[in-house]
């Protein structure tokens, strides 16, 4: 956690990037699969009974509105219902997200990345076991041993509210900035609230988590657990 001193940067930049990612993901999910441009790298099969298309040699999906590009070694999608992909990389304004497995439930408006998620973009390098996005709830979660090299931080989970700009770090969490380390024990929460100011977006921090926000996170987490169990 205690890496060498780095060039100073806006401390909340990583959180802003998270929010940006979620916003992009929201637009992507809500735009519908019909907006996808599909390119198969090889074999492509279509189950006429179910209408499910499988790109067995992989391919790429490009969301025309945002330009987000999903490349995977194996892709299956059912128009208007779901997208499944293996060995996935998603590239766009949000940066680069890589995950062994990605599942998009177009009906429910959720996205699950699992098997070890890596997310990189300028000023951000973060990994976690899974990423959960619920478009209807407007919540993105990074779960399971969230480790960020840039910034130097870790948490059991990080939850982001897209509309309100609230962020919740679930402990054990730690944030290191040079010789400085802020730690919270297991189960402890640290809430960050975005505010507009003359300096731009700033965040207030509190170890007291809003009840409504905590309930929303609890529900999102339950949804993620249910989706993961399927």
């Amino acid at each position: 956690m205690n890496g060498p001193a780095r060039h100073p940067r806006p401390p909340m930049r990583s959180i802003l990037v998270l929010v940006a990612l979620a916003a992009v993901a929201t637009g992507w999910a809500q735009s519908g699969i019909a907006e996808l441009e599909v390119t198969a790298y090889g074999r492509q099969s279509i189950d006429l009974a179910s209408g499910r298309t499988v790109l067995e040699d992989g391919g790429e999906l490009i969301e025309r509105g945002s330009g987000v590009r999903l490349v995977a070694a194996w892709i299956a999608y059912l128009e208007g219902v779901e997208v499944s992909a293996r060995d996935v990389s998603i590239d766009g304004d949000l940066g680069l997200v890589e995950a062994p497995l990605v599942a998009i439930d177009l009906a429910a408006g959720t996205l699950t990345a699992s098997g070890g998620v890596a997310w990189r973009r300028e000023g951000l390098q973060v990994t976690g076991e899974a990423l959960w996005f619920d478009a209807d709830a407007g919540i993105v979660g990074l779960l399971g041993g969230v480790e960020a090299v840039e910034p130097d931080a870790s948490a059991a989970e990080v939850w982001i509210e897209l509309a309100g700009g609230r962020v919740l770090l679930v402990g054990p969490y730690a944030y290191a900035d040079g010789p400085l380390v802020l730690r919270g024990p297991e189960g402890a929460g640290l809430q960050l609230d975005a505010r507009e100011s003359d300096e731009g977006v700033v965040y207030d921090a509190s170890t007291a988590v809003d009840g409504g926000w905590l309930a929303a996170v609890t529900a999102a987490r339950a949804s993620w657990e249910a989706a993961s169990a399927e």
Binding site: N2, P179, L180, V181, L182, R183, G184, P185, G187, A188, L190, R195, S197, V202, Y203, D204, A205, S206, T207, A208
Partner: peptide
């Protein structure tokens, strides 16, 4: 259930609650 803030070579602080008010 509280938090802990440490600074290498300087010391540490423990506390139950933390809140900031940027306004």
């Amino acid at each position: 259930g509280g938090a802990e803030l440490t600074v290498e070579g300087l010391g540490r602080a423990v506390f139950a609650g933390l809140s900031t008010d940027r306004v």
